[in-house]
Write a protein that binds this DNA or RNA. Structure first.
Length: 921
RNA sequence: GGGUGUUUAGCUCAGUUGGGAGAGCGACGGCCUUACAAGCCGUAGGUCGCAGGUUCGACCCCUGCAACACCCACCA
């Protein structure tokens, strides 16, 4: 058999699977379904995707093999803002502005772009081995989903759960659109707190000092507020101050919102440009003065000199002008949270505009209850707190975006500004009895991308049609996603799905951690520490990696640093590891912590693991070659070694089932790793060699071992398939059909079930004894620097009948594993030569010193053994001598300690005797 | 300000109802032993963040503290 080479097998098998439609639901059995969190149609696969989809794929393959009617629904998201920005940038390189094209032509361009680049993410998902049902792939802007969106919008509007209104919203002045709270990211930045004096109206010599972080907004102030309890300003309440620069009188009002301790205790109130001030303004019926244009330049409602200035330019001008008037009192450094648009990165403005909103509270109520009642379970459990915290304090959701790419809002306006909602213009006219002559214009806005995403689990299955798919696969079983998506998406799916389907979108929500780089840093373009899963699968040269990480940076000056760090970390670039090793690495780090560090060192280990599995299969294959026909024979004899590995297989199988059922992918992968490496390869394959090669073994026993080799390997492959889909398929194909099912793919084989009755405790304890003997000898060899191939006499003393019986039974195996020159059973103390010793229970294992063994080294070794046991004895004695322990601890625990003490004392006695005789040389 | 999580070997992390502290990587030593040097064998290394408490017994349960991380929130 050739060497393990992922590249050669992975693409081949995926294609085969897809051609044969193996990803389709079987149509029989209990349904199991998962809807993919739709990736951006024009996006590429990042490490977070690779992680998430690897987890889901293992789950899907596991359930499919377990006989479930399994659907992993594929689809992509139109990603309004992200995609529009991307295409806008593309056009900019050709010197084209969206406004040059106009709406329709621009949207056509986006569709073109989607057709052209939309295949990337799908290709990458295939490379990852994701067993998605491609045939029913959906797109959030396709006809069916658009229909679902209109249906939901109209019905919510009819119920008064969608409304239009002028509100203060988050405004992105570069994209010129509103954003929801969740699309705004606040980060602490160094800023200033300016203190200004506002002179009292009619008393220009008296001032009131206000503190602000945003001086330019003072042009829109409509009041100054103080705390009603604040004695300093009590007399000013109800009076007026003259707003400088604007020269408008504004009132001094009292409101508990004002914190007396902060700043000067006086707050300028700008209702049109601050969310708090907006609320204060409402309470006091203050006028709202909007001073900004859509692009955050100052509008005509400010004094002439500031008109048209950018907000930051205006800030400098206002500060300078107030200073010139002697009204600038002081400037403090001040750290504050600055809100920025998640996509554009620019500072977002609270901005007064007409928008559409979803009234969230009524929808949230049943959604909260569904989780409280356990209809939906969060895993790990405590992540439901994030959900509850968000839902119990939910605010209305601004769903309109001033973009061109997205679901256009199904509302039409007449020339008087009245609007009419309907599934179509015809319906809107009909519903409102409008004359056909009335001129209507459709609302130019589109819906927040998350609005269509919220309908994902059911719209992809055909809703509003009551399809068979919807009946079969909804509710879906589990949603696998990250923390930050809980509010953004999970909560909205739950609300919308309960509302329109009357059932939960999924029964479980598995929340996984965030994959970071090896240092725990979030992977990002700007940090230049991102790893592309494709580069790990296919490999990449250092120069290409550097080029990739330093191109298109928002801050080009970072390029040098990124290049340096990259060259240091990957001096040889990244070699091609293949998908299976990447996946296995991802499972192994999937513990239930918040951040998961991806370290290239680990993938190397798991690549080696795959290689080992490959070589083990090659060993099995060469040992059964020529014996294929007898592999199904019943005329066989199983040795203890065979029984033991079969036991191990059962235990691991049970452990993996438990792990998968509790979403512990890390424990599942580890159990598999340990079985394959530590038991199957390190012990079983080694022990099978003497059985197969010795004249002492009967043919029936050899047949038994060949059969166990083949069957165990075959089971391991099925067990491992959900995690390592490609290598397992490749190796499984090479298993003779006398051992495996004659099916065409491992994908559709039954997943192994554990069978308690196949656990053979006698064989287990025998093999355990055998391992101890072998380990004892290896330890002496290792410590005494005796070459593993140097044959030495080995003696046994003080063993019981069982030891003796086992020695005889396993002579052949022992000869192979410990390479004795001779094996002697000593019957009397007097026969004991001076020797290095190991203990196996009460039995002493001796390697005579005759020139081989260094006295001091052996003394050191014995001291170590003695010391270890003495410490243990101390602890154990302490317990036994504690009457409280003996009285109160369960009898079996006490007995266990007593037995242990006895063993320790016996061992110590022997070791000390041994030490004395060695020391006497 | 509120919330959640983390703290176990040099590094990254397991530790499933409280009953003898584990793995991988790294380190060190020895081996080309006929599946595998992408390998094999062996060894060292930890007052389980700190301080209390409950218990016969605590990495595990309770209280307090500290450090770090993340999420949410309107302190101008």
């Amino acid at each position: 058999m050739s060497k393990y080479s992922p590249r050669e097998i992975e693409q081949f098998w995926y294609q085969k699977w897809e051609e044969n439609n193996y990803f389709a639901p079987s149509g029989s059995g209990e349904p199991f379904s998962i809807a993919i969190p739709p990736p951006n149609v024009t996006g590429t696969l990042h490490m977070g995707h690779a992680f998430q989809h690897s987890l889901v794929d293992s789950l899907v393959r596991y359930k499919r093999m377990s006989g479930k009617n399994t659907l992993w629904q594929m689809g992509t998201d139109h990603a309004g803002i992200a995609t529009q920005m991307l295409v806008t940038e593309q056009l900019a390189t050709q010197g084209i502005k969206p406004s040059d094209l106009g709406r329709e032509a621009f949207v056509d361009k986006v569709w073109e772009w989607k057709e052209q680049s939309g295949g990337t993410i799908s290709r990458q998902l295939r490379r990852l081995g994701a067993s998605l049902h491609w045939e029913t792939e959906r797109f959030t802007l396709d006809a069916g989903l658009s229909r679902a969106v209109r249906e939901v919008f109209v019905r919510l509007h009819e119920e008064g759960l969608i409304y239009r209104g002028k509100r203060l919203v988050n405004w992105d002045p570069v994209l010129k659109t509103s954003l929801s709270d969740l699309e705004v990211e606040s980060e602490e930045e160094q800023g200033h707190l300016w203190h200004f004096r506002y002179p009292l109206a009619g008393d220009p010599d008296r001032f009131i000092s206000v503190a602000t972080t945003r001086p330019e907004t003072m042009l829109g102030d409509t009041a100054v507020a103080v705390n009603p309890e604040d004695k300093r300003y009590k007399d000013l309440i109800g009076k007026e101050v003259m707003l400088p620069l604007a020269d408008r009188p504004i009132p001094v009002i009292a409101d508990h919102y004002v914190n007396m301790e902060f700043g000067t205790g006086c707050v300028k109130i700008t209702p049109a440009h601050d969310f708090n001030d907006y609320d204060v303004g409402k309470r006091h019926e203050l006028p709202l003065i909007n001073i900004l244009n859509e692009d955050a330049t100052l509008n005509d409602d400010v004094p002439g000199k500031y008109r048209g200035m950018d907000r930051f330019e205006a800030r400098r001008a206002v500060v300078a002008d107030l200073d010139a008037l002697g009204l600038l009192e002081q400037i403090d450094d001040h750290v504050m949270a600055v809100p920025r648009g998640e996509r554009s990165g620019v500072v977002v403005e609270p901005y007064l505009s007409d928008q559409w909103f979803v009234k969230a509270a009524p929808l949230a109520e049943p959604a909260i209850k569904a989780v409280e009642d356990g209809d939906i379970e969060f895993v790990p459990r405590n992540t439901e707190n994030i959900y509850f915290a968000w839902m119990r304090n939910i605010q209305d959701w601004c769903i309109s975006r001033q973009l061109w790419w997205g679901h256009r809002i199904p509302a039409w306006y007449d020339t008087d500004g009245n609007f009419y909602v309907g599934r179509s213009e015809e319906e809107a006219r009909q519903k409102h009895g409008l004359s056909p002559d009335l001129k209507l214009e459709r609302d130019p806005d589109v819906l927040d991308t998350w609005f269509s995403s919220a309908l994902w689990t059911f719209s992809t299955l055909g809703w509003p049609e009551q399809t068979k798919e919807l009946a079969t696969f909804h509710s879906t079983n589990v949603m696998v996603t990250a923390h930050e998506i809980i509010s953004l998406w999970v909560s909205r799916m739950i609300m919308m799905t309960l509302k329109f389907v009357g059932e939960v979108p999924f029964r479980k929500v598995y929340i996984h951690g965030l994959v970071t780089d090896a240092n725990g840093q979030k992977m990002s373009k700007s940090r230049g520490n991102g790893l592309d899963p494709m580069d790990i699968i296919d490999g990449i040269s250092l120069d290409d990696l550097v080029a990739k990480r330093t191109s298109n940076l928002m801050q080009p000056r970072m390029a040098k640093r990124i290049e340096k760090a990259t060259r240091k970390e990957y001096p040889e670039g990244i070699m091609a590891y293949g998908t299976d090793p990447l996946r296995f690495t991802l499972y192994s780090i999937a513990s239930q912590t918040r951040t998961l560090r991806f370290d290239m060192k680990r993938i190397e280990g798991y690549r080696n693991f795959c290689n080992k599995l490959w070589n083990a299969a090659s060993f099995v294959s060469s040992n059964i070659a020529g014996h294929e026909s007898e592999l199904a024979d019943t005329d066989i004899e199983l040795s203890d070694v065979d029984h033991w590995i079969i036991s191990e297989l059962q235990r691991t199988t049970a452990a993996i089932h438990l792990a998968m059922d509790t979403y512990r992918f890390d424990l599942a992968s580890r159990a598999l790793y340990e079985l394959v490496r530590d038991e199957f390869c390190d012990w079983y394959l080694e022990l099978s060699k003497p059985i197969l090669n010795s004249d002492q073994s009967t043919d029936a026993r050899k047949r038994g071992t060949r059969q166990t080799l083949a069957r165990t390997l075959e089971s391991i492959l099925r067990l491992a398939h959900p995690f390592l889909p490609f290598i397992t398929e490749q190796l499984w194909q090479q298993i003779p059909t006398t051992v495996r099912d004659s099916g065409d793919t491992i994908m559709l084989q039954p997943y192994p079930a554990d069978d308690e009755s196949l656990i053979n405790r006698d064989a287990d304890s025998n093999i355990n004894w055998l391992k101890q003997v072998v380990t004892g000898v290896r330890n002496i060899r290792g410590e005494m620097d005796i070459s593993p191939v140097k044959e030495v006499p080995i003696m046994f003393f003080n063993g019981n009948d069982q030891d003796r019986e086992r020695l005889e039974r396993y002579t052949t195996l022992l000869r192979f594993l410990i390479r004795p020159e001779s094996m002697t059973w000593l019957s009397s103390e007097d026969d004991k030569p001076l020797a290095a010793t190991a203990l196996v229970g009460d039995m002493e294992l001796l390697v005579p010193m005759g020139g081989l063994i260094d006295k001091d080294a052996e003394l050191a070794r014995l001291d170590k053994e003695i010391d270890r046991r003495e410490k243990d004895r101390g602890r154990t004695e302490g317990k036994i001598n504690n009457p409280d322990f003996v009285d109160r601890a369960p009898a079996d625990v006490v007995q266990k300690e007593r037995d242990k003490l006895q063993e320790l004392e016996s061992a110590l006695r022997k070791l000390n005797e041994q030490r004395a005789s060695v020391a006497a040389i």
